[in-house]
């Protein structure tokens, strides 16, 4: 009986610690600035949606959202195609000088280096190509990051699929690439999904490169746009809270929707 009570108490405590900050964000976003700073209420006494309306009418949150969706979609889609092909080659073929293993290790090493290390040269590169403040510049950057990740993750999924199935297809007259496309790829679909989900999360949330590479609502993504609302001595708490809710809502909704795949992707690398 006492262990049951301990379980209930711990569960309630953990839920409270996680959810209270989120409650406060949502609650603040529904208050007016006057109520926030002058009255310090614990819940919105006069709830209002004005803060949200202002984000879209005065602060271009519509553009930020569009930019984020476009950039995330293309960089993840391209990286998935390129990454799946590369991962398959590394998992299945034996090249001279064990080149495929060396390439795999090289991509993994690139992945370990913190992205901040290449921030300056990527900025200079995009500057010289005239791709600052554009969708293309962000898509190119994020695609590269996602490719290293997709190759690394997809490779282990391909290894789990028995090669006999491809051989059977080839005996039946399929080409090797045909066997990959028609047999292996569909079998690896759950792995592809887990990879895509993780890449979407990381890309949608990325801030550092968006900060350096974009400057106007033409290309600013959600996290970047949200951060512009925050000055050093900012007092527009209401807008900030509403921006936080709008900024987090799509990705949290997405994550909860695909929860099961997500947990597998997050823990896969470590437990093996």
């Amino acid at each position: 009986m006492s262990t049951r009570l301990a379980r209930i108490l711990t569960t309630v405590f953990v839920l409270a610690v996680v959810l209270l900050p989120i409650y406060w964000l949502v609650s603040t976003s529904l208050k007016s600035n006057r109520e926030i700073t002058q009255e310090g209420t614990l819940y919105p006494h006069v709830p209002t949606l004005d803060n949200y309306v202002r984000l879209f009418t005065e602060k271009q949150f519509g553009s930020y959202l569009t930019n984020s969706v476009v950039v995330t979609f293309f960089s993840v889609a391209i990286a998935l195609v390129f990454g799946a092909m590369g991962a398959y080659a590394i998992a299945r073929f034996r090249l001279p000088f064990a080149a495929e293993r060396k390439i795999g290790l090289f991509l993994l090493t690139l992945r370990i280096i913190p992205p901040v290390v290449i921030l300056i040269p990527v900025y200079l590169l995009m500057l010289s190509l005239g791709l600052l403040d554009s969708w293309l510049g962000l898509i190119a950057t994020y695609t590269a990051f996602n490719v290293t990740f997709c190759v690394w993750m997809m490779e282990s999924f391909f290894r789990e699929i028995p090669v006999d199935l491809e051989e059977a297809a080839m005996v039946d007259g399929d080409s090797r690439f045909g066997a990959f496309r028609r047999i292996t790829l569909p079998l690896a679909a759950p792995g592809l999904a887990a990879t895509a989900i993780f890449a979407v999360l990381v890309t949608f949330n990325e801030f550092l490169f968006a900060l350096a590479l974009t400057a106007t609502p033409r290309a600013m993504t959600m996290p970047r746009g949200t951060a512009t609302l925050i000055g050093r001595i900012d007092t527009d708490w209401a807008s900030m809270a509403a921006a936080g809710v709008i900024g987090a809502l799509p990705i949290v909704f997405f994550a909860l929707l695909v929860q099961r795949h997500l947990v597998r992707g997050l823990t896969m690398g470590a437990v093996k």
């Binding site: 953990v14 406060w24 964000l25 949608f204 996290p223 809270a241 990705i251 909860l256 997500l262």
Partner: peptide
């Protein structure tokens, strides 16, 4: 389910959460 939320929320928004706290 609830424990998934903190790590998927955009880090920028996590910082806003804590500024508001």
């Amino acid at each position: 389910t609830v424990l998934i939320i903190p790590m998927v929320i955009t880090p920028v928004v996590v910082a806003i959460l804590f500024r508001l706290i």
